[in-house]
Design a protein around this nucleic acid. Structure first.
Length: 265
DNA sequence: ATGGTTGGGCGCCAA
């Protein structure tokens, strides 16, 4: 089973790229972020025509997440249950019965948090990370395959960016941000790409500005965290870097993870 | 340090 995450940076502006990539790569479940669309304006018919079920959690103008899947989820949760709610659409979770068991998959658009000295934005990011940790903790108790996939807006380690010094005071790389990400992993979650690839220069985002793509001035901020029941079935990971070279690309590329859920544990 | 670009929606904000 192929599960992917992609910050698409506007689903309506990216519909041709999305259709092309779905046809080429044929993922079974896709976690989208930054759809920048209300639910009613999501290009649902175009995606359904390719054989996908669509679940959205959108809002006007910004943010918005979605789950595309080749089979219908049994249950969908919109918004993180923990804490006092959210007026920003950043979380959607689906439970799928596939190939013999329940698989819980979330699409996460973690707050950017910049500017880091902002009295609202950075504290909101850290609070949101703690809410995610609490929710992940309760999901872990279910002891089922859990896949928390999305744009975390976190550079975990210096070798996850081209120029660490340039990010030193950025909300994506501050020590508190990285510590909060490690607290998630400490629950027993495995970061799929790093579990399978220790190379440097592995990036998922290249800024539109200043020729970042041409210089390979990227950062790795799109991640997939796996419960032990999912990590046991992890087969391979890939970063679909070629998509960044297409016409009208998103500034992020898809991260694809292949699982073997076919045989009994 | 600054400036560089894109999407959404029509102001300029968010990234």
């Amino acid at each position: 089973m192929k599960i992917a995450t992609w910050n698409i940076n506007g689903v309506k502006a990216r519909i041709d790229n999305l259709r092309q990539w779905l046809s080429d790569s044929s993922p079974d479940i896709v976690c989208l972020q930054e759809i920048k669309s209300i639910d009613d304006n999501f290009p649902r018919l175009e995606i359904e025509a390719l054989g996908y079920h669509v679940e959205t959690h959108g809002q006007k103008g910004f943010n918005g997440v979605a789950l595309l899947s080749k089979f219908r989820p049994d249950e969908v949760i919109r918004g993180l249950p923990e804490g006092d709610g959210d007026d920003q659409a950043r979380y959607i979770e689906g439970v799928f019965s596939a190939e013999g068991g329940a698989i819980r998959v979330a699409s996460i658009y973690l707050p950017n948090g910049n500017p880091a000295d902002d009295l609202i934005k950075y504290p909101y990011k850290l609070r949101w990370m703690e809410r995610l940790r609490l929710h992940a903790e309760s999901c872990m108790a279910l002891e089922e395959p859990l896949i928390l996939a999305g744009d975390y807006n976190v550079i975990p380690e210096p070798h996850d960016c081209f120029d660490p010094a340039a990010w030193a005071t950025d909300a994506l790389f501050l020590p508190q941000t990285r510590a909060a990400f490690r607290r998630l992993e400490t629950l027993g979650l495995t970061e799929a790409v790093r579990a399978t690839n220790d190379a440097t220069n592995l990036y998922t985002f290249w800024d539109y500005q200043a020729g970042a793509w041409q210089k390979n001035n990227g950062i790795r901020i799109d991640h997939m965290l796996l419960s032990p029941e999912a990590a046991d079935r992890l087969q391979s990971t890939s970063i679909e870097k070629h998509v960044r070279g297409w016409e009208k690309p998103s500034d992020h590329v898809p991260v694809m993870v292949v699982f073997d859920f076919a045989t009994a544990a």
